[in-house]
């Protein structure tokens, strides 16, 4: 891992004066944690100690709350997040922030496969690398990856923006719909129907905003935009090799 666990500033509750509930998962307690975050009201804050790679941490958050996970998370951390601000001070397992609706999920380390899968909204920031299928079937989420992403990322990506400050693996954006992809480094190969597109002023502007939101100072001018050639939108004999 390239990022140390304490590289993120402590965030404190959104509303001054709020209390923070601490869950130490050394001896279990995922059910209790999720029950508590489901019952939480706007502004409440939670800290998770010793996550130890456990699964389903802070899933189904449904209020503007803060959850700080101090360590590595397992599968589906912050799954279906709605409004929460979840910080993982470590690596995240498969499907971090899967199907997120709104809010923010910040991974200080690396993310495993299918980060942000099918997510409809919100912002997912990964400071390290994300492996295969990052942003698969994304439906409106914004994802900013500080490092590189694995193969088949943004497969069937429908909407939203994926920003990659490192490199992209094979078959980027295969069968992509209307999502917009921005990659700073190299792309190992583009998937079916995914093409490079010109960076116009509005793209530079939206990329700049996304980078700022993720706390990064990369220059938008260094990125290339990729998107759908829209040749697979209708079944056609000329495209049969792409099926």
């Amino acid at each position: 891992m390239t990022t140390t666990l304490d590289s993120l500033p402590a965030q404190g509750p959104r509303h001054a004066g709020g209390t923070t509930q601490v869950f130490d998962l050394k001896a279990g307690g995922v059910r209790e944690l999720n029950k508590a975050v489901h019952q939480a009201a706007t502004g409440e804050a939670f800290t998770v100690e010793n996550p130890g790679g456990k699964h389903s941490l802070a899933v189904g958050v449904n209020a503007e709350i803060d959850v700080d996970i101090n360590g590595h998370a397992g599968y589906y951390a912050a799954g279906m997040n709605q409004g929460g601000r979840v910080t993982i001070r470590g690596n995240a397992g498969v499907g971090v922030a899967e199907n997120m609706m709104s809010g923010t999920v910040h991974v200080a380390g690396d993310a495993s496969q299918a980060a942000g899968a099918t997510a409809h909204g919100g912002l997912l920031v990964i400071d390290g690398n994300a492996s295969a299928r990052c942003g698969i079937s994304m439906k409106g989420v914004d994802i900013v990856v500080g490092g590189s992403i694995g193969h088949m990322s943004a497969f069937m990506a429908q909407a939203g923006r994926l920003v990659v400050c490192g490199d992209a693996g094979d078959a980027l954006g295969d069968s992509i719909y209307e999502a917009r992809l921005y990659v700073k480094g190299t792309v190992a190969s583009l998937g079916a129907d995914c093409v490079a597109k010109p960076m116009r002023a509005e793209h530079l502007a939206e990329l700049g905003e996304l980078l700022r939101a993720a706390g990064r100072d990369d220059d938008p001018a260094d990125f290339t935009r990729y998107g759908s050639a829209r040749t697979l939108y209708h079944f056609h004999v000329d495209n049969s090799s792409a099926y």
Binding site: N34, V59, G79, E98
Partner: peptide, 20 residues
């Protein structure tokens, strides 16, 4: 998109149960 096979499905089902 985010699981393959019964060992992963077990984790996925647990997530859906946790959410609900």
């Amino acid at each position: 998109p985010d699981w393959t096979g019964p060992d992963d499905l077990e984790i996925k089902i647990a997530e859906l149960r946790e959410i609900t």
